[in-house]
Amino acid sequence: MIQRIFTLSLITIKESINKKVIYLSIFFALIIILVSRIFTSITPGAEIAFMTDIGLVTISFFGGMIALFLASDFIPDEIRKRTIYTVLTYPVRRFEFILGKFLGISGVVLLSHSLMSLIFLAVLSLSGGAIKGDLMIALALIYGTLLIFSSIVIMGSTFLSPLINIVFSLFFYLLGHLVTYIRHLGERMEGAFIKFFLIFFSYIVPDLERFEVKDKLVVGSALPIGITGSCFLYAMVYIVCVMMLTYVAFNEREV
């Protein structure tokens, strides 16, 4: 089983290697990071903070683009090109197929994320910035949000059309940065139904605020103790739930 999931994820990675969106994203990230180096003069005295801010947002954004455009098409592409017929008449369970796709996108995102991070760290240290442990944690946390995002995109791709899936996943991703706000809003609402709905909803969307450490990093304050562990656990649980829902949606699907 593990062997099959691994084989399926490798083929997914192999296929992705040819996709232009990866190279374009990395290229644009490189440009923006370099340009941010030039524009540090607008924030005298806070050059490194400025570059860190821009760098992390850029890495997160283009990582998200890669995850979105690749993951949203993995399963629809297999169905459209009917390569799934052959794979599913081999001893492959449907959950193995889904996990293979998820691990594949995790791998691709890991590779491109590492590459963009390296570019960023190189430019930062060349500009005299120190590479601190907290910065590495911030980069790891971004990877965590990308994994959560990928799992949502893959789930949507099993029952939504690609365009609707992209909109839906982005919507979830953006709301994921607003969970506290949604929860507060819910608590202040009058109607019992809308109150329940908003609070319930705030637990359904991924709590991405938890992963958000950039502001602390930029002003130089310490990160909460154990944040890596708690985020790791949260991401694990969330992804497992999403993958189970994906399985339920995909298992009954005709191909």
Binding site: I11, T83, T86
Partner: peptide, 27 residues
């Protein structure tokens, strides 16, 4: 064994790679 109406296989692989892939799925 199933051969679909048209051969729908991964177009970016060559013949050996394709069969190795399916062979690995067979264990």
């Amino acid at each position: 064994g199933f051969m679909p109406e048209e051969s729908y296989l991964y177009r970016f692989l060559n013949a050996s790679e394709t069969l190795c892939f399916y062979g690995q799925l067979l264990g």
